[in-house]
Amino acid sequence: MKGIIFTEFLGLVEQKWDEDMVDDIIEACDLPSGGAYTAVGTYDHREIVALVSELSERSGVAVPDLLQVYGKHLFGKLAASYPEFVNKASSLLTFLEGVESYIHVEVRKLYPDAELPSFETRRPDPGVLEMIYRSSRHLDDVCHGLIEGSIAHFKTEASIEREPLDDGTMFVIRCQ
Results as ranks from 00 to 15, higher is better:
I4D: 09
I5L: 14
I5G: 13
F6P: 01
T7V: 10
T7E: 01
L10M: 05
E14D: 11
W17L: 12
E19S: 10
D24H: 08
I25E: 09
I26Y: 06
E27N: 13
A28I: 07
A28S: 15
C29W: 03
V40N: 11
V40E: 08
G41F: 03
T42P: 00
D44N: 14
D44G: 14
E47V: 09
A50M: 11
A50W: 07
V52R: 10
E54V: 00
L55K: 00
L55F: 01
L55V: 05
S56E: 01
R58A: 03
S59Q: 01
S59F: 01
D65P: 02
L66K: 03
L67W: 13
L67R: 14
V69E: 15
K72S: 15
K72Y: 06
H73Q: 06
L74P: 10
F75P: 10
K77S: 06
L78W: 03
A79G: 11
A79Q: 13
A80V: 10
P83N: 05
E84H: 11
S90Q: 08
S90P: 10
S90N: 11
F95N: 03
F95E: 01
L96S: 04
E97G: 09
G98V: 04
V99N: 09
Y102Q: 10
I103E: 12
E106S: 03
E106I: 07
R108P: 02
R108K: 15
A114F: 04
E115W: 07
T121Y: 04
R122N: 07
G127Q: 04
E130A: 11
M131Y: 10
I132F: 02
R134Q: 15
S135P: 13
S136C: 12
R137L: 15
L139N: 14
L139S: 12
D140Y: 12
D141T: 05
G145E: 00
S150M: 00
S150N: 02
A152K: 03
A152H: 02
H153A: 09
K155T: 08
E157R: 01
S159M: 02
I160M: 00
I160W: 00
E161G: 05
L165M: 12
D166M: 09
D167H: 14
M170I: 14
M170E: 12
I173D: 04
R174L: 06
Q176I: 01
